[in-house]
Simulated assay, not measured.
Amino acid sequence: MVKKREDIENLRAVAIILVVLGHSVILYSDKWALYPTTVSAPPLNGLKDIINLIQMPLFFSISGFCLVYSLNGKRTFRGFLKNKLRRVVVPFLIIGALWLYPLRMLADYPAYQDVNPVNVLVKYIYFGYDNGHLWFLPTLFLMLVLTDLIARVPLFESKPSLFDLSLVAIALLTVAIPVSWPYLGQFGQNYMWFVVGVLFHRHEKWIREVCTGGMKIVLVCAAGIGCLITGCGIESMLLGKILSLICVLVAYLVVPNHSTATLRKISRNSMGIYLFHSPLIYLSFNFWPNISPWLMVLINFVGFGAVAYGMTELVRKLGLGIVIGE
């Protein structure tokens, strides 16, 4: 049985907090214009840019890190596939139909108006043309299955370094996939972070030996400066990728090894919080778009964050864990 890593629990808790906060302030991002507002909040715009630098790279890397446990467990591919379908795909299907769609319709979501419900469900939500935060789940499923299949190549058992190189090569090649392609484009943009998690786990001892003392200080300072640059609106695709990599590496290096009851609960409920929270914010964006930004953050981050946490606990107690991948 794999012993739980409290540092990884902490990272997962931090990652979901960042995601919830990022969704809560997205109305004020100059890169997002689905709902109009007369209110400007430059600090929240900068905060959203900083969160974008970290949130999904960290989330995907944690998934890659945890996959290594399964790869070491020698589970059959059939068993692995069944497990991931239950934990990733089934929640995607249920939440898309019974949570995302109804809430977006209630919030007068522009793209879904005057469109046949079946078309919305199949094309927009399930095929990924406009399904909000749910894009993460099919994309993650593709990463998990592909990586597991690659790990099963007989040659890589005797030459594990070739396995590492193959993952890096695929990550570099798939960056060229057009972003407009549902799921595949998102796979190409994010598989590198998944691979970072896999490689960090496989070579953790060596990485920690190298990144000590002065090197760790340099990385922490670089991450801080990178966040400052990003928050000020200075953008570069290559620079952004480098800064994201540094931030993820720093997160693994500085996260405490001991968790708390609160962080453990947030970590345990991270999947449910992710699934339930985002659709709720469309309600506040639609009905109260021009309220104080700080009140908006309070409603979305604290209020709806608590609702998402409570719903996760509720579905588990009702024996409906399948909704949240359990």
Rank of each mutant, 00 (worst) to 15 (best):
Q189C: 00
Y191A: 09
E204A: 14
R202A: 06
A222I: 10
M215K: 02
E209M: 01
Y183G: 05
R208A: 02
I207T: 07
V198P: 03
W206L: 10
C221T: 10
F187D: 08
C221H: 00
I225D: 09
W193N: 12
I217T: 13
A222R: 08
P182L: 06
V218K: 04
K216M: 13
Q186H: 13
V220S: 12
H203S: 10
G214M: 14
H203A: 08
F200P: 02
A223R: 08
Q189F: 01
V195Y: 06
G188C: 02
Y183Q: 05
I217C: 02
G185S: 10
L219F: 06
H201T: 08
E209H: 01
A223W: 10
L199E: 09
R202I: 03
R202D: 03
M192S: 12
L219Y: 02
T212W: 04
A222N: 09
C227G: 15
G226T: 01
H203Y: 14
F187H: 08
I217P: 00
T230I: 10
V198E: 04
V218D: 00
G185F: 10
R202V: 04
G226L: 03
K205W: 08
C211P: 04
F194N: 12
Q186C: 04
T212K: 15
L219H: 03
V198R: 03
R208Q: 10
G231S: 08
H203V: 05
G197M: 07
I225T: 13
L219R: 02
Y191V: 15
G214D: 11
R208D: 02
A223Y: 07
C227V: 01
W181L: 15
I225L: 15
N190C: 02
V195M: 06
V198C: 13
I207Q: 08
T230W: 13
V196G: 03
C221E: 02
A222C: 14
T212Y: 04
V218Y: 08
G214N: 14
G224W: 11
W193D: 08
E209T: 02
H201L: 11
R208L: 06
I217N: 06
F200G: 01
W181K: 12
Y183V: 06
M215C: 00
L219P: 01
W206V: 09
A222W: 11
V195I: 10
Q186E: 14
I225H: 07
G224I: 04
